[in-house]
Design a protein around this nucleic acid. Structure first.
Lengths: 226, 226
DNA sequence: CATGCGGATTGACCCTAATCAAATAATTTT
DNA sequence: AAAATTATTTGATTAGGGTCAATCCGCATG
């Protein structure tokens, strides 16, 4: 891990993100004051479950994976965040302890906002509080969606649902590139990699073609029915 | 469903709850102004997924079950809230649309706080915003826990974990009464009722006795090891 | 006390996905 | 481009739970 200062480009990216965009410029700058940047290699751990965390993180590039560990060492993914997303914000209000482990799922650059300061600002400034509320709601809903999918859908259905979530409305056929390794996708969907692979081959009969990271859909309806 | 006015006892219960206790009295009263109470029979639906909700709910008595529906009509429980808990708060920040269905899991009385007003107060008042932030964090963590348990634990382990969560630290043997039907517990743990039953009988060999709703634990260690 | 009902348990069976092992791609390194 | 890693796929097997059906139990009711 190397730590750097915030470049002006980083700053611009941060300010354009959903979280900061809603805030008055001065407020956003106040939050960013003191923010540093760190770079990590794939597999680096940023923080561990139940340990203290002093930052809220913003992904500038790369991918982060939040997961919990079972007694037997197995890992359960809680969430995966790509560039532009914030994570670790809930620790701020839970005694500054992480609820999960955070691991770089590919080479990663994050901005580290000082969590104590951010918490303080949220306590004084309703705009900041509001932004945090929406962030927490959004993340909460994501987890809820995940839980519901786990309980309601089979592996191929979860994969179909994932694919559809990337399909713009109205199109009946389209293609896109997976934003990360199948490995990571499997974890995110709560599947072993083998199960993901088999799910894809199930979906072939519904017009899904997989070539490397590129997914092609011939028939949206068929996928929705699955 | 019948609707009533808030009794002074209801009001006292509300003000003593975790959410309101942190707020200045006047602020709490402002939130409660306009609050009404409704009673529901078991199985009544309070709101449905994706439909508009205009309240945030506080359980005065009984039990509520939040669940999502699958395409095939199967139900997946997202959370179960007993007396004293608040639910439906996330809809406030998601265009006033519920993320799940809410059903009374037993005869139920809830206080209905006007969500638009509460949202407005949160936007003006940092105390209110703070209280909401902590509520959202708490609920978010609950969902996260649930997701992790689903992915990491077998049925007997989930049941063991549930039992342990009711065991005061330090005690090695104790007993308690399930706060709801096994039916509901099964749903909350993401199990079919049959699987819950079988899990209990697995746990017999680790010193767990089940008589009706009463659970008795002989050996805490054994349960933790499971 | 007999009856009926709903919840809970048990048994039988099946299906899904995890696991382990091996074979193939894909990438990276040399 | 060959070698060496690192992903991904495929096959075989197994464990964990879901589902369905039958039975049992506890409790309320007449």
């Amino acid at each position: 891990m190397k730590t750097l200062r915030l470049t002006s480009n980083d700053r611009a990216v941060l300010l354009a993100s959903r979280f900061f965009a809603r805030l008055p410029r001065a407020t956003a700058e106040a939050i960013l004051d003191g923010t540093i940047v760190s770079t990590h290699e794939e597999h680096d751990i940023l923080f561990r479950q139940d340990e203290p965390v002093d930052h809220v993180f913003f992904v500038l590039s790369g991918l982060i994976r939040l997961y919990r560990l079972g007694k037997d060492g197995r890992e359960a993914d809680i969430a995966v965040f790509p560039k532009g997303e914030i994570f670790g914000e809930n620790a701020m209000f839970l005694d500054h302890r992480a609820t999960a482990n955070a691991q770089a799922a590919e080479p990663l650059i994050v901005a580290r906002l000082e969590s104590r300061k951010l918490r303080q600002l949220a306590a004084e400034n309703t705009d900041v509080a509001q932004a945090l509320i929406e962030l927490l709601c959004h993340h909460g809903k994501m987890t809820e969606d995940c839980l519901a999918e786990d309980r309601l859908l089979t592996a191929p259905q979860r994969v179909a649902s994932y694919i559809l979530s990337h399909c713009p409305d109205g199109l009946s056929s389209f293609s896109f590139r997976l934003p990360f390794q199948k490995n990571v996708l499997a974890g995110k969907l709560g599947l072993a990699p083998e199960a993901l692979s088999r799910a894809f081959s199930m979906l072939r009969q519904s017009g899904v073609t997989v070539k490397g990271r590129v997914i092609e859909i011939r028939d949206r309806q068929a996928l929705e029915r699955f």
